[in-house]
Design a protein around this nucleic acid. Structure first.
Lengths: 248, 248
DNA sequence: GCGAACATACCAACCGGTCGGTATGCGTCA
DNA sequence: TGACGCATACCGACCGGTTGGTATGTTCGC
């Protein structure tokens, strides 16, 4: 089975320089940062981060292992040292997506609001505020990947689904507190509202891609805010506009 | 430039039989109907319909021209006779998606309601009722394709975007009439509500894929209905539940 | 000196796309 | 009536390049 092999000595530096020049020719190169020299041991994280960026822009199937390697200056051998298959990378990338986004949201200022409803409105305002730059910069890795892989790869589907659902579960906590404090005009559950919130955001990403503009996402968030306003019977003069008290 | 060629006589029947046997080995074959013998002239439509089915299940990039040809019993030569490129097929498939779905919705019973608001609630009930079977059977070709191609192919992005936006424009007409008849509790526009409706549906598809179940889509539609209920101050005892009068 | 982290070369299958050719139907004019 | 020209639909071998994946080294820190 093994064919004839040559043993031509080459240095790592040669490869790295080649990687950079190849990347300049790459169709996504202009916006991708040059693969700055990594320290040994970085390959795995570099590949995952490149996957988060490239898959959000091109989709899962259109993003090849070779392209990932080129973008990071990692060789194919190294790729398969860290990941058993492309699917395994997908599962790991979904986990990494949660790993990256969770602290990002956890560290945001809206958590300081005392009233859980204010935190929810703050969350929505925050999600609107981060919708900037090119569409692929603020859309969701899990949502994008799900669309393509839900029927072809159960492990990836499960991992991406969990990423979204875990995030929803965090938002659900604030809804739970809000429901304990405020009585909604119609019967709702915390989990239901949290899932619906993610639904609106994911749909906003799709419509933003449809229009080629972030506007539909911002409008969707505004409608969701109005829904919560009516549900919880808050004054139309937005609650977070009248300087709500913050904690800690 | 032209390489050596052989002139081996083959019959169309040979090819068709080969197509069927190949398809039995295909990973999506079990659920795909066998490529029943087409009449001459059918190739283009057959390819477009196969694209709508396969792309919704596998995504755009994962669906190859060869696979489309296998599924339909069409040869590659015929494919490129009808479409200049894979991208051209994508644009045509988006148009076909509208061509297929538009009369489907136009023919639905909810249009008989006299009150435009009843038509809107009927539309939502209809969308919930058709969410049956495997997820790829009720999700949107345009939305799925958009996620992957919005940055790589402007023609496909534009075509898929228009498909969704044109459908929203039809729903917007009922919202326009509803706003003329009923005064909303908060300031909204017909176009804004129609776009938001599509946002919720598209997001519902993503969340359905995330959970591997249609439930999030149905819940999202229910929340949207509640939003409209509060906005237009309709009795919580759903308007289409108290037998509204119909027209024509 | 040993295992983890890489590097390099290679593979079969498949990718989108090309191209010379064939099959068939239709209008037209002798 | 029929044969001629021509357009449309279709055929399938072939192309260069890419795909995910493998096999076999080499390097390096402990």
């Amino acid at each position: 089975m093994p064919a004839t092999r040559r043993a031509k000595p080459t240095t790592p530096a040669t490869r790295r320089r080649a990687a950079v020049s190849r990347e300049a020719l790459d169709d996504v190169a202009p916006s991708t940062p040059p693969p700055r020299p990594r320290r040994k041991g970085d390959a795995r994280e570099a590949l995952l981060d490149a996957a988060l960026t490239l898959v959000r822009k091109q989709g899962w199937a259109a993003t090849s292992i070779d392209q990932l390697c080129r973008a990071t200056g990692v060789t194919k051998g190294a790729f398969f040292h860290h990941f058993a298959s492309k699917d395994a990378l997908g599962v790991a990338a979904a986990a990494r997506w949660t790993e990256v986004t969770a602290p990002f949201f956890a560290g945001a200022a809206y958590h300081r609001h005392v009233d859980p409803l204010d935190r929810i409105f703050g969350y929505l305002a925050f999600r609107a505020s981060i919708a900037e730059g090119p569409i692929e910069a603020f859309t969701c890795f899990a949502g994008t990947t799900l669309q393509e892989t839900f029927a072809s790869s159960e492990p990836i589907r499960e991992a991406c689904g969990r990423s979204i659902l875990d995030h929803a579960a965090i938002v659900a906590e604030d809804f739970r507190e809000a429901l304990a404090l405020h009585r909604p005009a119609l019967p709702v559950t915390a989990e239901g509202l949290a899932t619906y919130t993610q639904t609106v955001l994911q749909g906003g990403f799709v419509l933003a891609k449809a229009k080629g503009d972030r506007a539909p996402l911002l409008e969707a968030i505004a409608h969701l805010r109005q829904y919560l306003t009516l549900l919880f019977d808050v004054r139309p003069s937005a609650p977070h506009a009248r300087r709500p008290k913050t904690r800690a």
